[in-house]
Design a protein around this nucleic acid. Structure first.
Length: 232
DNA sequence: AACACATTCAACCGCAGTCCC
DNA sequence: CGGGACTGCGGTTGAATGTGT
């Protein structure tokens, strides 16, 4: 997973670090501290550029580095912070002792952002209340066929009005989503982009958004039904 | 077993900001 | 004040590894 080592025309090495190089860098910084990165490799006896040394130290060798999978709590905090700070990875990393900005950036790009991308679509606005109470459970759980769901909704005006009502609640007050014992606090979502909010909600199996495939076809059907209400 | 495709993550690159002469 | 040197950050790359067929 590491680029193989190679040398440029100046004899500078790039690519994967060897254990010997790691030891040299570790020993030098242990003795002299992080001083001039540009000069450091010369005095440490490394055929690397200062940038490469700095990166290796900060992202890999620095004491206290924490590796391994991100926890659910960490994932949620990353999303929350990203919503506030954007792609300010170093600022986000300050809230995660032992994690590097590079780690968080990689995790975001490889996991969170990708998962979010699979979950777009207006149907995510349907609330969980509507599912067990007003729609036939077997029809909803059997598949994610958009016409099935659309037919269900078309046949049940009560359901439609409740969905519409809940959309309004959603718009003004996210708390309506969490009145069934969720551990998430309402203010957790204050100011959060809707997309991020729905991504977090989608992790809960009892929330309607998690169980439906957010296909483009269904989004069309949903907009057909709720377009007027929602201004689509 | 063999191949194709997807995922992971360390490392590189370019740029912007800061410092110093 | 201008310009070069240096640092730090965010985007991207690409080989190793994992997973599916």
């Amino acid at each position: 997973m590491v680029k193989p080592a190679s040398f440029d025309i100046n004899g500078m090495k790039s690519g994967a670090w060897s254990e010997e190089e790691d030891n040299k860098l570790r020993a030098f910084i242990g003795q002299f501290g992080q001083t001039n990165w540009r000069q450091l490799p010369v005095f440490a006896g490394l055929k690397r550029c200062g940038k490469s040394c700095r990166l290796r130290w900060l992202n890999y060798l620095r004491p206290g580095i924490r590796r391994g999978n991100f926890t659910e709590d960490e994932t949620h905090l990353i999303i929350k912070l990203h919503n506030v700070l954007g792609n300010k990875w170093s600022a986000i990393a300050e809230h995660f002792p032992g994690r590097t900005d590079n780690d968080i950036k990689n995790y975001w790009n490889a996991h969170i952002h990708k998962r979010k991308g699979r979950r777009n679509g207006t149907c995510a606005r349907v609330t969980r209340e509507i599912k067990p109470q007003n729609l036939a459970q077997e029809e909803l759980s059997s598949d994610s066929n958009s016409s099935t769901i659309t037919n269900c909704l078309n046949q049940n005006t009560t359901a439609i009005s409740e969905v519409a009502e809940n959309i309004g609640v959603f718009e003004s007050n996210a708390d309506s989503y969490f009145n069934h014992g969720s551990f998430i606090e309402q203010d957790y979502f204050d100011g959060m982009e809707e997309e991020n909010m729905m991504f977090l909600l989608s992790d809960y199996s009892d929330v309607g958004v998690a169980s439906w495939d957010l296909s483009a076809a269904f989004e069309q059907d949903f907009n057909k039904i709720f377009g007027d209400y929602y201004g689509k």
